[in-house]
């Protein structure tokens, strides 16, 4: 293996070398992955550890709104919530980022100015990714020019599933180029990849092509993020760090609604990739309704009584 800055340069030389590399990755034991994720999900996190986990999870949230009905007002309201998730309790940390469509990036940037909360934008014909490379790159440039510091792109699942790995690679690399200094998160849409082997291959493909983060799902396809899929991706970033010397983050997104779910993911991160990844720079939770549940659990721990949704914002 070459030791240049791109140790996988020769892998990406052609579709056949890419195929040989990706299909040479060890297969995923589906039953084993499911069982391990389920086992780690039974860990009991209580009291002080739970309090820390809740605050960490809040700091990891990418507060997301990706609806056709999004308005400037809704994005501003969400940004206010991102900075002060619970206005009645200043000890609640801010979330990591807000995630919006490209046309609303400027609104979010303005609303979050000086707060430290980042602005992420989906791009590249989200959520299907069905457009030409030119349009995808232009979409990315639009979001970056508007001030997005993170770009969530989708891969071309059609090309990936038909074995055209080079197209997927080149598109990711081109979008990475268009990102400039912005971080690139690559959405694999694992719900459409059918097997864990494909999830592992797509993870490696994205990382080789330059992804800063790999993300499970758009949130538009069911199933979205699941524990076993995230396990496979966490193993991939761990192995990629060992092989290529570059650290890549992971972001499960979609379907994470409860504090219990979020804590299961944190356990999974700790036990798979290691505690180095337990940081908003390396692990994110793409969610919207999760935040209120985290706040309710936090309030329950502080007040000793079960909280109710009437006391938090409707998103």
């Amino acid at each position: 293996m070459s030791t240049t800055t791109t140790p996988f340069a020769e892998v990406a030389a052609s579709t056949s070398t890419l195929r040989a590399f990706l299909h040479g990755l060890p297969g995923v034991d589906r039953v084993g992955a499911d069982a391990r994720a389920a086992m780690l999900g039974t860990r009991s996190i209580k009291t002080t550890a739970k309090r820390q986990a809740i605050d960490l999870a809040i700091r990891m949230v990418d507060l997301t709104t990706l609806e056709g009905a999004d308005t400037v007002g809704k994005v501003r309201a969400m940004c206010a919530k991102a900075i002060h998730p619970d206005p009645t309790d200043p000890s609640v940390p801010a979330v990591a980022a807000v995630c919006v469509y490209p046309d609303l990036v400027a609104t979010a940037v303005q609303a979050l100015k000086g707060s430290g909360v980042k602005v992420a934008s989906v791009a590249t014909a989200f959520p299907s990714g069905r457009s030409s490379l030119e349009v995808k790159v232009a979409d990315t440039e639009l979001a970056v020019a508007a001030g997005a510091s993170e770009i969530d792109m989708v891969i071309d699942r059609g090309a990936f599933l038909s074995g055209d790995y080079l197209t997927v690679y080149e598109q990711i690399a081109a979008v990475k180029g268009a990102c400039g200094s912005a971080h690139l998160k690559v959405i694999l849409e694992t719900g459409e990849l059918a097997t864990y082997d494909n999830v592992r291959r797509a993870s490696w493909l994205a990382m080789i092509a330059g992804a800063d983060f790999i993300k499970t799902s758009t949130g538009k396809v069911s199933p979205a993020a699941t524990l076993p899929v995230t396990l496979v991706m966490l193993e991939a970033v761990r192995d990629f760090l060992r092989t290529a010397g570059r650290k890549v983050g992971v972001k499960p997104a979609g379907g994470i609604r409860t504090t219990k779910d979020a804590i299961k993911y944190l356990v999974l991160v700790n036990e798979t990739a290691g505690p180095d990844w337990l940081d908003p720079d390396w692990f994110r939770l793409g969610a919207s309704s999760l935040l209120n549940d985290l706040l309710m659990q936090r309030q329950k721990m502080a007040s000793g009584r079960y909280a109710g949704p009437d006391y938090f914002t409707l998103d």
Binding site: G304, R305, Y306, A307, G308, P309, D310, Y311
Partner: peptide, 9 residues
Amino acid sequence: PWLAGHMDV
């Protein structure tokens, strides 16, 4: 008492 203190009851 848990039900009485529950904010969603």
